[in-house]
Amino acid sequence: MKIETIKQRKEILQTIRNFYDTLEYLEVETPLISPTLIPESNIEIFETTHIHPFKADKKGYLIPSPEVWLKQFISQNHINVYEISKCFRNSEQSGKHHNPEFSMIEYYTMGFSHLDTLNLTIQLLEYINSKLPYSKLSKKSEILSMNQAFINYAGFSLEDNYTIDKLHKRAVELGISISDDDDWETAFNRIFLDKVEPNLPNNVNLFLTDFPSNIKTLAKKIPNTPWAERWELYINGIECGNCYSEERDPQVVKDFFNEESEMKEKSRIQHKVDSNYYTIFKDFPKCSGGAIGLDRLIMGILGIDEIEGVILFPYRDNI
């Protein structure tokens, strides 16, 4: 990483902080080690041990995102908040766009839906472009629904082919290798990653909206549709942000925890889950949270196409 890039990275982070500070979001710092995590079956985590000389040792886990803390904070303080945090994801192989330890900004706005956060995020990107003359981010942002993206790039409507049997058939027609054991999400991802994602417009800041609610997250479902109130941000064709209208029905959160905990048993590293976490949603404000991978955003701003170009001392196994 060049010294010039290190200085620009510092300036970019300062600009992002200025944006949220001006809007009077409170910046907080939450722990990187947590005794429990939100179960996410697809994310492998790092574990560590807190030793005690006289009592039993305790397991702790490096957070894959600050969500587990920020939601507790919001349940106690109904205010707009952001955090710039290190996040840790294990077993994601290093490569052009991955480092197991990375920086993320997560920001929550009270009263907002995912679409309000989308507009706020466009404002953030415009603010970065206006403050940093060297920014290579596109001045244009575009919104594309997942269903339209499937129509454009996979040649079929996802909504009309939503069952696993139909997805299987479409995959076979498209020449995509698919296994009979694949669950819905795997079948979806095989088509999405092969046909849709590589063809998404990469000359704009792209907001891909309305993700299938079959992908289990804590995003609110859009009633009477197969979609969730969720979007992802793509910059130069690289996924670098994710946002929900936050689910706040305690029972739905409880069910999510139970289902994901069960799936999590297949993971290499198990972690503790707070079985009472859902109770924080008994008094949880309507809000929307967005998260942006800062290293990837910085890649986009500086026009650098490998993550190791924007972080000091990248962890690299085999690129």
């Binding site: 697809n42 995509i176 991802n189 990653l193 092969d194």
Partner: peptide, 28 residues
């Protein structure tokens, strides 16, 4: 290249070349 959808399991994208005729193929 590895791809890990934000909320999904991990995938790899491969670029392949048939050395016999130079034809290339991308698969996930």
């Amino acid at each position: 290249e590895f791809v890990n959808p934000g909320k999904g399991s991990s995938f790899v994208r491969l670029k392949l070349k048939d050395q016999r005729n130079g034809a290339s193929l991308k698969v996930t």
